[in-house]
């Protein structure tokens, strides 16, 4: 074998290997994430149930019920399911507790001081959205950030 093929062969194979792994991964980010193959939930919640954000990452191995709670007899009977929003029947504390089962308060405090003063007053979904690919609060412009403060705090 020539010297060139000695170097080129492993190089080519490695490139191929990388590509073969990366291409399905790109796809997975959109619809083939394991979480979205959860037929039990997605069958009904097709429209807003799909999850594309960081939390859907296969490596995390999360399921819908990890955050939303036990399915119980849903949709026919009673269940402990909670929704994350202002209009959710779940209290702010309940909603926050679901997130805090993984997230550390100290870390959140260091990431942004406003976590400390809102945790028992505003639900996390008031500022964060986990279903879209990118949480819209991340990297928000200064003026938009202020606008979001003003949207609650404005006194007439």
């Amino acid at each position: 074998m020539s010297k060139i093929s000695k170097i080129a062969l492993p190089l080519l194979t490695s490139i191929l290997v990388v590509f073969s792994f990366s291409s399905p991964m790109v796809k997975a980010e959109t619809s083939e994430l394991k979480m979205n193959q959860n037929r039990q939930c997605i069958m009904c919640h097709k429209k807003n149930g799909n999850m594309y954000g960081l939390h859907a990452n296969d490596a995390l191995g999360q399921t819908c019920q990890d955050c939303h709670g036990d399915k119980g007899k849903h949709p026919r009977g009673e269940s402990d399911l909670i929704g994350f929003s202002q209009s959710s029947p779940a209290t702010v504390e309940q909603q926050t507790a679901a997130c805090m089962s993984c997230h550390d308060q100290q870390e959140l405090s260091e990431a942004d001081w406003t976590h400390n003063v809102h945790s028992n007053k505003v639900n996390c979904a008031g500022c964060h959205q986990l279903h879209p690919e990118v949480d819209p609060i991340i990297g928000i412009s200064e003026s938009k950030r202020i606008a979001s403060c003003v949207s609650c705090h404005e006194s007439k």
Binding site: T96, Q105, S109, W113, N116, V117, S119, N120
Partner: peptide, 9 residues
């Protein structure tokens, strides 16, 4: 701050 105990900070 923060002053006080979480979550009443």
């Amino acid at each position: 701050g923060p002053f006080g105990e979480y979550p009443n900070q």
